[in-house]
């Protein structure tokens, strides 16, 4: 079955969605959408670097994203500069630089659209292996740091005072982000990775009564969006990334409708009745 390109894309896409969802929850909780954009836009620089140095693309993207992520974390720890504009500047600088660098490499034929918007035809068996090995690694590390990372998200000072290591958790978190961006680039493309991270998480928010539950629900919504989006992409010959994001947005809109309200956790609604 893996010989069918569409099936390969499905397997890869669902894997990516499941890994991206729990990280996406943290992106939502910590309001890091800009940060995610900066990292994923920097991925294009990684692609250029891979062609230049003849490296594995996923590895090169990971290295560039990880470098940018760690630099940003260290910068923000002392920053007085508004991080919003700093990130916006960096994101677009990285994107523009990557595009210019790739344009210079006219000797190699590069499918730029594929990198920007994802390409289901491009998923190889090796990509699936990379996604699942990398993805399982990310999930294991995330499970280990989950408790500390969540505490640091709620209140870093409280976490640190009570013996946790919020700075270390943050650093691990951004490295996990870099990994997810590297492995999901082929499916969704650099421009829309943040959407895949945050839209399923935002959809899950309305139905979740706890952080762990929200992560699991987000994974389900993400996987459903990938399946729906890829079928759409196949049907209408649209690029896979935007199709997946459109499917995710449709789920989100449905979650806002009154019908979905019936599925919400009871605790919030009966809160007023407690003595």
């Amino acid at each position: 079955m893996l010989d069918d390109f569409f099936f390969r894309a499905l397997i890869a896409g669902v894997g990516v969605a499941i890994v991206a969802a729990p990280l996406g929850c943290f992106v939502v909780w910590r309001r890091l959408a800009y940060f995610g954009d900066t990292l994923s836009h920097a991925a294009l620089l990684g692609v250029a670097l891979a062609f230049l140095l003849e490296l594995n693309i996923t590895l090169a993207v990971f290295l560039v994203c990880a470098g940018v992520a760690v630099a940003l974390v260290l910068l923000q720890r002392r920053a007085t500069l508004s991080s919003d504009s700093l990130l916006g500047l960096l994101a677009h600088a990285a994107l523009a630089l990557g595009l210019v660098a790739l344009a210079f490499m006219s000797s190699v034929r590069i499918d730029l659209m594929g990198f920007l918007f994802g390409d289901i035809l491009a998923v190889s068996k090796f990509d699936i292996l990379t996604i699942y090995l990398g993805g399982i690694g990310v999930l294991i590390v995330l499970a280990v740091v989950w408790h500390g990372l969540f505490a640091a998200t709620v209140n870093p000072e409280l976490a640190e005072a009570e013996g946790m290591r919020p700075h270390r958790s943050n650093l691990i978190f951004v490295l996990l982000m870099a990994t997810v961006i590297a492995i999901s680039m082929k499916i969704v493309g650099v421009l829309l990775i943040t959407a895949l991270l945050i839209i399923p998480a935002a959809t899950a928010r309305r139905f979740a009564s706890g952080p762990e539950q929200m992560a699991v629900l987000a994974a389900l919504f993400g996987a459903a969006a990938v399946v729906g989006g890829l079928f759409g992409s196949l049907n209408w010959d649209t690029p896979s990334g935007p199709s997946i994001v459109v499917a995710a947005v449709i789920f989100f809109v449905i979650s806002l409708s009154p019908l979905a309200g019936l599925l919400r956790p009871k605790t919030e609604r009966i809160k007023g009745e407690t003595p």
Partner: peptide, 13 residues
């Protein structure tokens, strides 16, 4: 954006 009830909050750290 954080779904967090008192029970879970008790085990924060």
């Amino acid at each position: 954006t954080l779904p967090l009830n008192v029970r879970r909050f008790m085990s924060l750290t």
